[in-house]
C-alpha cells in the first residue's frame, strides 16, 4: 500500500480554507480524492461527491441550526461538540448495522467499541445541555459505501482526524475550566480512535500519527476553528449549521 503524500503541505493547504462552505466542501472532497488515490480510501464513492452543489448545506425541508457566536459562548461550543458527536455516532451505528464485506472479528470489536464511545459522547452532551441542546441532526451518508472496507475506514479516519482538530481548535474559546476539562477527556479518546483506525488502514506505517496530521517540525497536531469544521462536515448533515467564532474573547 502506498503511503499518504510525503509532503504534508499538500493536504494541509487543502484543508485550511474557510472562505465559504462551498470552498470547504471542495477541499474536503479533494482531500478524500487524494486519500483514495493514495490507495487507502473511498475509491467507490469519489464520483458521487465531486459535485459540491449536489451535497450542499441548506437542503430543502431541513432546518437551520444556529450555534451563535462560538467565541463567547460555552453553550454554543458544547452544542458544536454535540453536533460532531451526533455525526460520528450515526456513522458508526450504520457501520455496525451494515458491516463492510470481509470485516474481521477484531475490526468489528474495535468499531463496536468506537460506536459505543461516540453514542456515550452524544448522549452525554444531550443530557448536559438539557433544554439548551440543538435538535437531533439528520445525517447524509449517501457518499459513503458502507459495504467497502476502504470507504468505511477511510471515512472514519477523516471523521476522527477532523474531530480531534475541532476539539483542539475550540479549546481556546472555552471559558469554563470544567467544560475545558470535559472536552479534554473526550478529545484524547477521539485521538485514540484516530490512531487505531489509522492502524487498521496502515498496520506497519506511521498513519496513526502521520506527517499529514502532525507537523513534523513541531510535533503539534493540526487544529481547525469551528467555521472550518462546519464547512467540512456540511455535506454529511442535512440541516444547515451556522456558527462563527468572533475575533475576540469576551
Amino acid at each position: 500500500m502506498e503511503k499518504l503524500p510525503k509532503d504534508p503541505t499538500d493536504v494541509r493547504q487543502l484543508l485550511t480554507g474557510r472562505e465559504s462552505a462551498a470552498v470547504g466542501r471542495r477541499m474536503f472532497m479533494r482531500y478524500l480524492g487524494a486519500t483514495a488515490a493514495a490507495g487507502v480510501a473511498l475509491s467507490a464513492c469519489t464520483d458521487q461527491i465531486v459535485d459540491p452543489s449536489a451535497s450542499g448545506s441548506g437542503r430543502a425541508g431541513f432546518a437551520t441550526v444556529d450555534l451563535g457566536d462560538l467565541g463567547s459562548n460555552d453553550v454554543g461550543i458544547l452544542n458544536y461538540a454535540y453536533a460532531l458527536e451526533q455525526l460520528e455516532a450515526a456513522f458508526y451505528t450504520q457501520v455496525i448495522a451494515t458491516p463492510y464485506t470481509g470485516i474481521t472479528d477484531g475490526e468489528r470489536m474495535i468499531l463496536r467499541d468506537i460506536r459505543d464511545h461516540e453514542i456515550v459522547h452524544r448522549e452525554f452532551f444531550k443530557a448536559a445541555l438539557g433544554s439548551a441542546a440543538i435538535p437531533g441532526l439528520t445525517p447524509d451518508f449517501s457518499s459513503i459505501n458502507f459495504s467497502s472496507r476502504a470507504s468505511v475506514l477511510g471515512t472514519a479516519n477523516v471523521f476522527e482526524n477532523i474531530g480531534v482538530s475541532a476539539y483542539n481548535g475550540a479549546g481556546q474559546f472555552i471559558k469554563s475550566a470544567d467544560y475545558l476539562t470535559l472536552a479534554g477527556k473526550i478529545v484524547s479518546v477521539e485521538a485514540r480512535h484516530a490512531s487505531i483506525i489509522a492502524t487498521l488502514l496502515e498496520p506497519q506505517g506511521t498513519l496513526f500519527a502521520g506527517d499529514n496530521i502532525i507537523f513534523p517540525s513541531s510535533g503539534l497536531e493540526e487544529i481547525r476553528v469551528p467555521s472550518e469544521v462546519l464547512a467540512i462536515v456540511a455535506p454529511y448533515i442535512k440541516e444547515t449549521i451556522n456558527g462563527m467564532q468572533s475575533a475576540r474573547r469576551a
Binding site: N168, V187, R192, A209
Partner: peptide
C-alpha cells in the same frame, strides 16, 4: 492551544 496539540499526539501514541 499548543498544549492541546501535544496532548492529542500523546493520545495517538498511547493507543498505538
Amino acid at each position: 492551544t499548543t498544549a492541546l496539540q501535544i496532548h492529542s499526539v500523546e493520545a495517538r501514541h498511547a493507543a498505538r
